[in-house]
Design a protein around this nucleic acid. Sequence first.
DNA 1: TAGATTGTTAATCGATTAACAATC
DNA 2: TAGATTGTTAATCGATTAACAATC
Lengths: 206, 206
Amino acid sequence: MEDKFVPNIVVGRLPLYLRTLQLMSQEGRRVTSSQELGERLGISAAQIRKDLSQFGEFGKQGTGYNIDYLSDQLRLILHVNKVWDVAVVGIGDVGHALARYQGFSNRGFRIVLLFDNDPQKIGKNVGGFIIQDFSSIVTKIKTAGVQIAMLSVPIDQAQPVTNLLVDAGVRSILNYAPINISVPSGVRVQYIDPVLHLQRMTYYLE
Amino acid sequence: MEDKFVPNIVVGRLPLYLRTLQLMSQEGRRVTSSQELGERLGISAAQIRKDLSQFGEFGKQGTGYNIDYLSDQLRLILHVNKVWDVAVVGIGDVGHALARYQGFSNRGFRIVLLFDNDPQKIGKNVGGFIIQDFSSIVTKIKTAGVQIAMLSVPIDQAQPVTNLLVDAGVRSILNYAPINISVPSGVRVQYIDPVLHLQRMTYYLE
DNA sequence: TAGATTGTTAATCGATTAACAATC
DNA sequence: TAGATTGTTAATCGATTAACAATC
């Protein structure tokens, strides 16, 4: 089921479904429908049903989806039924905010390592973790078996640091530096750059 | 030219092109080609040419694109040939990082207003600006004529604060709260939620 | 039972790519 | 001139939607 090819664009919507279902669950709701989910997300009901059908049958005709059951299934599909250890690399303002962000733990992630190369910062405690020196990055990440990193270093360090992360066995990188980085196949990168989003909106402003 | 309909997905790629061109310009480069741009971005050369052709003819056969000229044109198209004033609403760790982020100014944005509702924070200076009380948000934003806001408040405040922003005349919202918000037509929302990106990658991890 | 909603198929719609004449 | 690369067309590919039988 999960072995078969699923379009990337579909995979990208699943976390959105999960996020909304978790919220509904917190609201005390028990069941929902593709229509309701769609309305909350601005996505058509047909698309949601089609997306889910890639992975199995999770609903009941006439009643819809059990929220907690579908959430569990989505967590299994997305492999966030466990908690993933994450490293934050580059503890400037962005890294600092990530290290202290409370929104990871109930969605499948926890931060376990912080790195920076500024002697002023090394040894400091942020969000309960001690900032460690870049020089130890490969061994520390390897030893901890961390496979996911959030990268919040300056632009010119993004590629060299990425290379270290790849050497250390990191397979998923969330890159906050506004530059495209190269990784070998088997390693995935996602990008966050607020300016891209802002410029996408100013197109429609005068 | 800009009046005619352009697919949203095309508009979304333009900021990426611009970002790469600005980087090339800083590297001292003068010209590039759709092929080179495509390689740096992981996008096909044909797609880049097709996207650009929606807005005009910016290249020369045989030589390619003048980097600074194409950058200027993209800035005009995206309306970032000017600098937009932006408000940051909610000065927790994320808002704090946004307020101090140095990457906005050379890409068309500058932060001019900060808001929070925590009496402990109101009056404090972050990144050169004084945090102001929520109670003044509508009038202050109206007076300043700010049309863009970055929203970094807790989940449960996202929708009510959004309503205030809309009342104040904000037309573009970059929402960091992990929840979908409703806005009237004419107002645009973009979302940033790191967990969505992480979960999209764990799908491919075991 | 009647009403509601799923999962799925086929039709539609839109986006990407390949190819090439034009031309620098 | 020969080589390179654009802008654009037509073909391909993929994603979305509409519709409905199945069934809770």
